[in-house]
Amino acid sequence: MKKLLFLLLPILLISCEARLDDDKRAFFKTRIVDSSGLPLVNASVEVTTYRSYDFFSINGQNLTKTSEPDRDFLLGKGTTDENGAVSFTMLFDTAYRYYVHIKGVDDSSKILAVASDSFNQDLTLDIPSITMTDMANVELEFINTSGTTTVYDVTINYFAIYCDELYENNSFVRDENCEFEDEIIDLVNQTTDDGLFEFRAFYPSVIDVNYRDAAGNEVNEQFTINNPTERYEINY
C-alpha cells in the first residue's frame, strides 16, 4: 500500500502532457527553387519537430511520461508564392532537430533537417534558399581496360534517398547519421562481372568514389549527378 502511494504521488505531480514551449512564437522564412534554379510555386511547406518520449524513473523502473506519438508536432506551415518564397509564424519546441517538409504541386518532395543552432537567438529560422532534389538512377561501372589482376577495395559515398539533408551553421551538409550507412564498400576485379554498381541518389549531388589496390595505392574521384539517369565509367 505504501509503495502504491509512492507510485501515485509522482504520477499525480508529473504532467503527462506532450508539451511545446510556453510563451514563444518563432518565425520561418525561405525561398524554394527546383533543381534547375526556378522558383517552386504553390509548394506546401511544413516545419515539424520530433515528438519524443519523456522518461522518468520510479524505483529504478523507467516509465514514459507521454504516450506513443501518432505524428510529430506541426510547428507551422505555409505555401510558396510566385517567387518560391514562403514565411510563416511558428510555435516553438526546444529540440535537437527540426524538419522542413516541402511538397510541390508536381509531387516532388523533400525533407530538410535543421539543426537547433540554425534558429537565431531571436527565434527566427531564415534559410536563404532551398534547392529541391530529385531522385536519380545511377550506374557506376569499373571496367578493366589494362588487364590487371589486382583486386581493388572500393568505397562509394553518395547522397542516398533515405538520408536527410541537414542545414547547420548556415550551410547544407549531409546528415552525419547517414554517412556510414550510405556507403557502398565492396571488392572489384575478383570476378569478371563484379564491377557494376546500381543505386538511387538525390540530384543535384556529388558521388565520392575511392578505390585502393593491395599495395595501398589509392585513387579518389568525384562525379556530379545532374540528371534523372546517370552512368559513369571508371577504367583501370
Binding site: 506532450a18 511545446l20 510556453d22 510563451d23 515528438r51 506519438p69 501518432d70 505524428r71 506541426l74
Partner: peptide, 14 residues
C-alpha cells in the same frame, strides 16, 4: 492545444 493531426501538443501563453 493542437489537434491530433497537428501533433497533439499543448502549451501556454501567459
Amino acid at each position: 492545444r493542437q489537434s491530433t493531426e497537428q501533433g497533439g501538443g499543448k502549451f501556454r501563453d501567459t
